[in-house]
């Protein structure tokens, strides 16, 4: 916003060039070393498969996107509620924070079989996995944001006789928003991991399932096509959260404009 547009455009151009360069190098390396397309297909092959199989892949893409967004939304909502509970009192924060960090280091793969036992294979375990996996960064960040609110800001309201709820709404939550958005960017990418993980273990729909079957059939190009679909969805959703973050919490980023 404050930067001249030229610099921004140049940065975008550079990013695009690096990406194209990467695919070019990949293509050339495969050709030069005569890599078998059972090991590593060339980008042109992958994009061809992607294009040809699109009618087949599209419903699975929609399924994965839907599952991820649902899990992500549930994760964010429960994460914010939990984070507010943990972060709004010093005692709760000191007691629960170490527990949270401990829990978040448990590999979430382990929960997939449990969900399958409880709910059967299909969409439900995928939604739950992506929810569980995206809760933690949100809780931890929201709690940290709330707990690190400057007491000076709270004093401004307390003098006026404000209730705890007033302080929460008018100071702590706005103050914690940048922390929330930072966690959303992490959570949305993790939510994809959760969905695909669960789909590849226990589902008959979704990109994760497609990739699983394709790899069983040694259709490596299709596996990579699935990967590319996932990457594109991930990048788009990341960009969307970054954009919303910039709009909503621009005040917190005025000095790091060039880093977003």
């Amino acid at each position: 916003m404050m930067k001249p547009l030229k610099t921004q455009q140049r940065q975008r151009l550079l990013s695009a060039m690096v990406l194209i360069g990467f695919f070019l190098l990949w293509e050339l390396a495969c050709l030069a070393f005569q890599v078998s397309d059972l090991v590593l297909p060339r980008p042109t092959q992958i994009f061809l498969v992607l294009f040809e199989k699109m009618p087949l892949l599209w419903p699975h893409t929609v399924q994965t996107l839907y599952t991820t967004l649902l899990g992500f939304a549930l994760g964010v909502i429960s994460g914010v509620l939990l984070g507010v509970m943990v972060g709004s009192s010093r005692l709760a924060y000191n007691v629960a924070y170490p527990l949270l960090v401990g829990f978040s280091s448990i590999p979430k793969v382990a929960v997939v079989p449990i969900f399958v036992v409880w709910f059967g294979a299909g969409t439900v375990p995928a939604v739950l996995t992506s929810m569980i996996i995206s809760i933690f960064p949100v809780v931890v960040n929201v709690a940290t944001g709330l707990a690190s609110t400057e007491p000076e800001f709270e004093d401004v309201l307390k003098v006026l006789g404000a209730s705890k709820r007033d302080v929460l709404w008018n100071v702590s939550l706005p103050r914690a928003l940048p922390y929330l958005f930072a966690s959303l960017k992490v959570a949305i990418t993790l939510a994809f991991v959760g969905t695909v993980l669960s789909e590849s273990v226990a589902a008959n729909k979704g990109i994760g399932n497609v990739m699983m079957i394709a790899s069983g059939n040694f259709d490596v190009a299709l596996v990579f096509a699935g990967l590319i679909i996932l990457a594109v969805m991930g990048v788009l959703l990341y960009a969307l959260s970054a954009y919303i973050e910039h709009r909503v919490t621009g005040w917190a980023h005025r000095k790091t404009e060039s880093m977003t």
Binding site: E150, D155, V156, P174, R175, W251, A252
Partner: peptide, 8 residues
């Protein structure tokens, strides 16, 4: 210190 909230 004039504590003005930066988000407002």
């Amino acid at each position: 210190n004039p504590t003005m909230m930066p988000w407002l």
